[in-house]
Computed example of a mutant assay.
Amino acid sequence: MGADITSLGAYFARGGVDAAAVDAAAPSVSPAGLWELIRGEARAHRDPVLRDLTRPSILDQPDFATALAYLLSRKLSNDLVRKATLFALIRDFQISHPPAVEMAVADLASIRERDPAASGLLVPFLFFKGFHAIQSYRVAHWLWHENRRPLAHYFQGRASEVFAVDIHPAARLGQRVMFDHGTGIVVGETAVIEDDAALLQNVTLGGTGKEAGDRHPKVRRGALIGTGAKVLGNIEIGEGARVGAGSIVLKPVAPFTTVVGNPARVVGAPHRGLPSLTMDQSLPAAECEI
């Protein structure tokens, strides 16, 4: 079995170390181990109003993957596309692509460690729509490459309706990606978001409207993009970079650099580590004094 959740704190506390050390420090959290922790929280849950939700969603499910398929199919179904049909489709995806389940586990574990609003695993699993949107995207991405593109767009459109997060099925997302709050995030067709990156609400990874082909941003490992930032065009947000809230970014951002403003400009000296692991959105001291 992989490391339990309590051992993850030391890993995510490494936000100030060199980024090269992160992969070596990253734990392997097993689906079975994480699932037992979620079930333990559900068994301890005493609110009678939510009992009808936690029992079928958690306690009646045999494992993490099946519970996730149940959860997504319930949220993404409608009067014309039945829950049972979506459940079977999502399970087919999980069985044919086992790493997708491992990625979902890593995503959820990282939320527990990085988001101060997440006091456990049960609430993020059931209610955090940034997590739900990313897992829905993974199914859509599979369908896109299976040449079932209208169905992939169904997942995209339905997730946008339900979660207010719009991720094109062709975009490429890594693992341990965190969409904090999620509301209003837009990720374009040729965008890339690498491992450990974090985006806050109302972030857009979009095109300029004047390009064709590869036209969306590439967000490298461990970058943090603040609330309401707009990153436009085929530009790179470097590893460990930090984009301040409300910034308009039209040019590449160097690794381990902080940018703010409209248009975005560099502030302070280069930093070390990956700000997405600590969700540190503070500006360099000299900038704060202006």
Rank of each mutant, 00 (worst) to 15 (best):
H168Q: 03
F127A: 12
V162Q: 01
Q156G: 05
I111A: 06
S119D: 10
F155P: 09
V105K: 00
A117L: 10
A164Y: 03
R148S: 12
F163R: 01
H97T: 13
A159D: 05
D107S: 05
A164R: 02
V139E: 00
M178Q: 11
L173N: 01
A152D: 01
V139N: 00
A140W: 00
R91N: 04
L126N: 04
V101Y: 07
E161F: 11
A170G: 14
D166Q: 04
P98D: 02
V139I: 15
F128V: 13
L200A: 05
A171I: 09
A170L: 11
R112C: 12
H168K: 02
E113K: 13
P98V: 08
K129L: 08
I90W: 07
V186I: 15
F125E: 02
M178C: 07
A171N: 04
G130C: 07
Q94G: 00
L108V: 14
Q135Y: 08
R172F: 06
E102H: 14
G120L: 13
A164M: 07
A133M: 10
A104Q: 03
V105D: 05
P217E: 08
N202S: 15
R149K: 14
H132M: 10
H181T: 03
F125V: 03
H97L: 12
A212Q: 07
I111T: 11
G182L: 08
H216P: 13
S136I: 08
T183V: 14
P98H: 06
D196W: 09
R158M: 09
S110I: 14
L121M: 13
K210D: 11
Q94R: 02
A100F: 06
D92E: 14
L143M: 05
F155W: 15
M178T: 13
I193V: 15
E194P: 06
E194N: 04
F155G: 01
L200Y: 15
I185Y: 02
R148C: 11
G130M: 04
P217A: 05
P124Y: 05
H97W: 14
L121A: 06
N147V: 01
I134A: 03
A212H: 05
T204W: 05
P150M: 10
V219I: 15
A191W: 00
L143P: 05
S136N: 03
Y137I: 01
G209R: 02
E211R: 07
T208F: 13
R176A: 15
D214T: 12
H153K: 11
A104W: 03
S136V: 08
V186T: 02
W142Q: 04
E194C: 09
S160W: 08
G174H: 00
L173F: 03
A198Y: 00
L122R: 04
H153T: 06
V219W: 02
V177N: 02
I134C: 08
A164D: 12
V105I: 13
R112N: 13
P150Q: 07
A104F: 07
